[in-house]
Simulated scan of single mutants.
Amino acid sequence: MILEVAILYIKKGEELLFEKDFEIAGQHISSINGYVGHSLRKCIEQENKYILLVDWGKIEDHTIGFRESEQYLEWKKLLHHYYDPFPVVEHFETILENKKQ
């Protein structure tokens, strides 16, 4: 499994609108083959900073399956105008995982 990570800086004062539109956008990303799940987390120290975590089966599910889809065009329409600056998106693979039972 691959973890997509993006740190999102939202234009100040637009955080609540972004969160509302993100709920809608989540329907588009979750319909893609290879999508496993996602979470959006808001920074406590900086109110306009978020982190997006998306689990994919393989990197191509994101870079090709999602980014070349109609769903991505809808995602862009809903969300891209909120970012300042535009986020850097990176992908990670798990080397070690330890969770408390």
Rank of each mutant, 00 (worst) to 15 (best):
F66D: 05
F18E: 07
V5N: 08
E23M: 07
I24D: 03
G57M: 13
R67I: 04
L17K: 13
E15Y: 07
K12M: 14
V5T: 13
H81V: 02
G34D: 11
E45Y: 13
F92L: 15
D84E: 15
K76S: 09
P85H: 02
E19S: 04
V5Y: 11
E90W: 03
S69A: 06
E45K: 15
V5F: 07
I10Q: 08
E19Q: 09
E15Q: 09
Y9L: 14
L73D: 12
L8Q: 05
K20P: 01
Q71C: 07
I24G: 02
K11S: 11
D84H: 11
L53Q: 03
I44Y: 10
H62W: 04
V89R: 00
I32S: 04
F92Q: 13
V54H: 01
N33D: 13
F86G: 00
I64S: 10
A25C: 05
R41H: 14
F22P: 01
R41Y: 08
L40Y: 02
I64N: 10
H81W: 11
L53D: 01
D61M: 08
E90Q: 15
I64Y: 08
K77M: 08
S39M: 14
D55Q: 14
D21I: 07
I2N: 08
N48H: 14
P87L: 12
Q71Y: 02
E90V: 14
D61K: 03
H80Y: 11
E15C: 02
E70Y: 09
L3H: 07
H38K: 04
I10W: 11
L3Q: 11
I44E: 09
I51Y: 05
G37R: 14
E23F: 01
K49E: 10
D21Y: 11
E70Q: 12
L16Y: 12
H80F: 15
L73Y: 07
E68G: 07
K42N: 01
K99R: 11
C43M: 11
L17H: 08
Q27R: 14
S30M: 03
K58R: 10
E23G: 07
D21L: 14
K58A: 09
I44F: 12
E19N: 01
K12W: 13
E93N: 11
L53S: 04
H62A: 05
E74C: 04
Y35W: 06
W56N: 04
R67H: 04
F66L: 09
Q46S: 13
T63H: 08
A6Y: 09
F18A: 07
I95D: 04
G26D: 06
F66Q: 01
I59R: 15
G26M: 04
Y50L: 14
K99H: 09
G26Q: 01
E14H: 14
G37I: 04
G65A: 08
E70P: 05
L3D: 02
G34P: 05
I2Q: 07
L73H: 06
I10L: 09
P87Q: 06
E97M: 10
Y50M: 10
K99M: 09
G57Q: 14
R67D: 08
H81Q: 06
G26T: 05
P87E: 06
L79G: 00
I32N: 04
L40I: 12
R41L: 15
Q101M: 14
G57F: 10
D55L: 14
L53Y: 10
L8W: 03
N33H: 09
Y82E: 01
Y82Q: 00
F18G: 06
E70V: 12
K58N: 13
F18M: 05
Y82L: 01
S39P: 00
L73W: 05
